[in-house]
């Protein structure tokens, strides 16, 4: 049919454009970071004395480390909390309570990062400051990030638990396992791949998070000596310096963007693999 053929061509055009957006982003990031990738030797990101972009010193390591520390700290807190929440919803709560708690987690997922940042800035940071100044610190960043990735971990773990075949759980019960024995020994291993995929995606989210971290982390470029030290992450650095960056400096910021994107891409592909082998 004439109309159908036309439609398919239009749709193909649209889908091709959609797929090209990803490529376009990669091309432009590469294009903008090209001066730094070719003009500066990459080893300088590691060997330069410090991060003084206006004097041409581009030491990226403290910021990379801060990014990794903040994200892994957040995961260490969010994974147990998220798993516990999912177990609660699936295996313990009454249907009514489960619905309410799940709704709460979903609403938490919808709160924008700038609001988490604002709350961290006005509430958490002053509290931490009373305990151990200055307040705006790695710890504040970790706590805010925890809240932001918790819903993701809970909801993916929830889906993974729900997908565990009922027969497995009944067999476990028939063998006389206690409820926790069943959860730890049967449900958790059966849902493992889905849960891991969720955790990896949460890690990707935490690595790239900008605004909330920018608002609470203090933004001093340094290797933190304790969790109370202020730090600056890669993403926050981009947001802070893009406004006035020129030439090489701008290119280096694009390199750090490219680096973040590469990290996140590897993580999402990894998560995709786990998800695919969910029932393996």
């Amino acid at each position: 049919m004439q109309a159908d053929r036309l439609l398919v061509w239009v749709l193909r055009g649209g889908a091709t454009l959609t797929a090209l957006v990803m490529l376009l982003i990669l091309v432009f990031l590469l294009f903008e970071s090209w001066p730094a990738l070719t003009g500066l030797s990459l080893i300088r990101f590691v060997t330069d004395a410090a991060w003084h972009p206006l004097e041409g010193a581009y030491h990226l390591m403290p910021m990379l480390l801060a990014t990794l520390l903040a994200s892994s700290g957040a995961l260490m807190l969010a994974v147990p909390l998220g798993l516990a929440s999912a177990v609660f919803i699936v295996f313990f709560a009454s249907p009514r309570l489960a619905a309410v708690y799940k709704r709460l987690i979903e609403l938490l997922a919808g709160i924008p990062s700038v609001v988490f940042g604002f709350w961290g800035l006005t509430t958490l940071a002053p509290l931490i400051n009373e305990w151990h100044p200055p307040g705006a610190s790695l710890l504040a960043a970790v706590l805010v990030l925890t809240l932001m990735v918790l819903p993701m971990i809970t909801l993916t773990a929830y889906t993974a638990f729900v997908a565990v075949p009922d027969a497995l759980l009944r067999n476990a019960a028939a063998l006389g396992l206690s409820r926790w024995g069943m959860i730890v020994g049967v449900a958790l291993p059966a849902a493992r791949n889905g849960i891991i995929a969720g955790i990896i995606l949460a890690a990707a989210r935490a690595l790239g998070e900008t605004m909330a971290v920018l608002m609470v982390a203090g933004n001093v470029v340094q290797y933190p000596e304790s969790i109370f030290d202020p730090v600056r992450t890669l993403a926050a650095n981009i947001a802070l310096e893009m406004a006035y960056a020129m030439d090489d400096h701008r290119a280096v910021l694009f390199v750090s963007g490219l680096l973040l994107m590469a990290l996140v891409m590897v993580l999402s592909v990894l998560a995709g693999l786990f998800e695919r082998h969910r029932h393996a």
Binding site: T18, M22, L23, I25, L207, G208, M242, G257, M265, S268
Partner: peptide, 17 residues
């Protein structure tokens, strides 16, 4: 696949682009 990767791109990178 392209959409799946796009979904994971951090928003600051969209800002750069």
């Amino acid at each position: 696949f392209s959409l799946y990767v796009l979904a994971g791109v951090p928003s600051i990178v969209f800002g750069l682009f």
